[in-house]
Design a protein around this nucleic acid. Structure first.
Length: 322
DNA sequence: AATTTCGGCAACCGCATAGGC
DNA sequence: AGCCTATGCGGTTGCCGAAAT
């Protein structure tokens, strides 16, 4: 298994599978000099490998404590849960997931996901999961709003609480909205990262099909788990003020999310429109069951236009002015 | 037995970011 | 402030062996 060893590249560096001798040289160097200075490694040892290749080999295979294969059921479950929380339609934070699995590398988890779990997801049907995807550039965070789970859903007559209606939130998409829109009182600040050119592209097709892709693989998770993530890796993903966001979700921030001002910075278009909001109706009042924030509250202010023709599974294209 | 197809996975590539100058 | 280099990360590629035909 693997690649043909010893492929010489144009610049004289070796590509392909690592030989035992190369591994030995690399291990000896790291033992002596420690990790880092990967480009110096090649110079000092005569190893015909680029620094990146050396680092990758060390991090993924030669580093002490690396586990190989036999991912347990517990580990798989954790991967799925973390992927659900840290992954999204365009990218997944494999390194963060790997950080929660001692001895596992991001590369291994990524391969495992693509080989096994994604296949399971493909083979599995999730007929009750319906996604509303917001097209945009680079996603950083995905928050699934599931009826009865972390947050309630109450957008329009078609989306009802208690159903698995999933909305994918994306701070990059909302970077303007966040300043004046529904999160304005929630401490969600403008993300530092600009949209990535390399990962540009819509999150969903415009075909109107509801995709159950591996990255849409939805499992139930409790509000407790949601807040566990807020307390941990989630915080690393953006400069969201976690405490304020939590307080807002929990209702401690009062009615800042209710009837927020309509953002004037967004040029929004909706294909299909949006159902009428019932954000201030009974049941949407703040309480300790995290039911205060309906998705209508979250998203209605993003849209400059709406109508009653919106249907589940419709694509919604939102154009933000940068 | 020979050929084709598929699955697994190591490694590469391109981009983003951090840090030094 | 701008450039350069090193490092880190995620997506993709492509080889090999196993399974299917």
């Amino acid at each position: 298994m693997g690649r043909i060893p010893r492929i010489s590249s144009e610049d004289g560096l070796t590509k392909g599978a690592w030989s035992a001798l190369e591994d030995e040289i690399l291990v000896d160097y790291v033992k002596t000099h420690g990790e880092g200075k990967w480009s110096n490694l090649a110079k000092q040892t005569g190893l015909k490998r680029c620094g990146k290749s050396c680092r990758l080999r060390w991090m993924n295979y030669l580093r002490p404590g690396i586990k190989r294969g036999n991912i347990s059921g517990d580990e798989e479950e954790l991967i799925i849960r973390l992927h659900k929380l840290l992954g999204n339609s365009n990218i997944c934070r494999w390194s963060l997931i790997a950080g929660r699995l001692p001895g596992r590398t991001d590369n291994e988890i990524k391969n495992y996901w693509n080989s096994y779990i994604a296949k399971k997801a493909r083979d599995h049907q999730f007929p009750s999961t319906r996604s509303v995807e917001i097209t945009g550039k680079k996603p950083d965070i995905r928050v699934d709003l599931q009826g009865g789970a972390a947050l309630s859903c109450g957008v329009g007559p078609q989306l009802q609480q208690g159903k698995e209606d999933v909305i994918q939130l994306n701070p990059d998409h909302m970077k303007n909205a966040a300043l004046t829109g529904p999160f304005s009182g929630a401490g969600l600040t403008k993300p530092k990262l600009e949209p990535s050119k390399s990962r540009a592209g819509p999150l969903s097709s415009t075909s109107g099909e509801i995709e159950n892709t591996p990255t849409n693989f939805i499992m139930d998770f409790s509000s407790e788990e949601f807040f566990n993530v807020l307390d941990s890796d989630f915080a690393k993903l953006s400069d969201v003020n976690i405490n304020e966001l939590k307080n807002t979700i929990e209702g401690d921030s009062g009615g800042t999310l209710l009837n927020p001002p309509l953002s004037q910075e967004i040029t929004g278009t909706i294909n299909g429109g949006f159902g009428s909001s019932s954000s201030t109706a009974e049941g949407d009042q703040p309480n300790n069951n995290y039911n205060m924030v309906s998705s209508a509250d979250l998203f209605q202010p993003l849209f400059l236009d709406s109508n009653d023709g919106w249907q589940l599974g419709d694509d919604i294209d939102i154009l933000f002015s940068d």
